[in-house]
């Protein structure tokens, strides 16, 4: 299979389109169809990148939520279990498309590409550097958090302990310590690569929009248009 490599700018546009579609609630079948198609594209792209496991996981999760939402819950259902179900399905059906998209973009975009794309779009340095750090940091935070969690479990400070304030403190404070240290290293590395220099930076990555990019542009613009049309003009 051919590997599809998308331009960061296309990815940004896709995120924009998906967030737009996710924000407005889908009611009619057309809208649901648009939403499902828009969700399936990043899943397909993930599989294309060779990340079959995560693609499958997202697909199963989203599918299960949709089925539950369609057949098990109605406006009349009440009680604790349905409230939890509503919670779960609500989260998944509402935010999953945006999450899959964001996950795909974060895991497949190299920071160099991202910065170069931002520079081409004339985004101020402040925003692009900070955003790049945020993007790079989510996996780091997760990793750090998991190891802190392990350490705290060994000490017996877990959710079962019951003292919520202690629990938050013992997790957040070490997390901030390690994040600060990583930040120091990161800024040293960035300065070494000349990020703060007052010259126009060049990039080894040549960004060019190719056929796949245009195809995605068209698909997502069309689905946005279709969504708005069926929502407001009919």
């Amino acid at each position: 299979m051919i590997k599809i490599h998308l331009d960061p700018r296309t990815k940004l546009f896709m995120i924009f389109a998906v967030s737009f579609i996710v924000m407005v609630n889908a009611v009619s079948p057309t809208e649901w169809a648009v939403r499902i198609i828009v969700t399936l594209i990043p899943v397909f792209l993930l599989a294309n990148e060779g990340r079959y496991v995560s693609a499958l996981r997202f697909l199963l999760c989203y599918g299960a939520a949709l089925v539950l939402l369609k057949y098990c819950i109605s406006a009349e259902s009440t009680g604790v279990i349905s409230a939890l179900l509503v919670g779960y399905c609500g989260i998944v059906a509402q935010f999953m498309p945006a999450m899959i998209m964001a996950w795909y973009v974060i895991h497949t975009t190299k920071i160099g590409e991202f910065m170069s794309a931002m520079q081409k779009m004339h985004i101020p340095d402040g925003i692009s550097v900070s955003l790049a750090v945020v993007m790079r940091f989510f996996p780091t935070i997760k990793e750090e958090y998991l190891s802190i969690n392990d350490a705290m479990k060994m000490r017996g400070i877990s959710l079962a302990g019951g003292r919520i304030a202690k629990m938050i403190e013992y997790r957040l404070v070490p997390l901030m310590f390690s994040c600060l240290n990583i930040g120091e290293e990161l800024s040293a590395a960035a300065v070494t690569r000349g990020l703060g220099a007052p010259v126009r930076r060049t990039s080894p990555v040549q960004l060019k929009l190719n056929a796949a990019d245009w195809l995605m542009f068209v698909i997502f613009a069309a689905s946005m248009f279709l969504f708005v049309y069926s929502k407001y003009f009919r």
Partner: peptide
Amino acid sequence: DFITIGIFTAL
């Protein structure tokens, strides 16, 4: 400073 902002925004 930008990197500091990024880290804390993520947190």
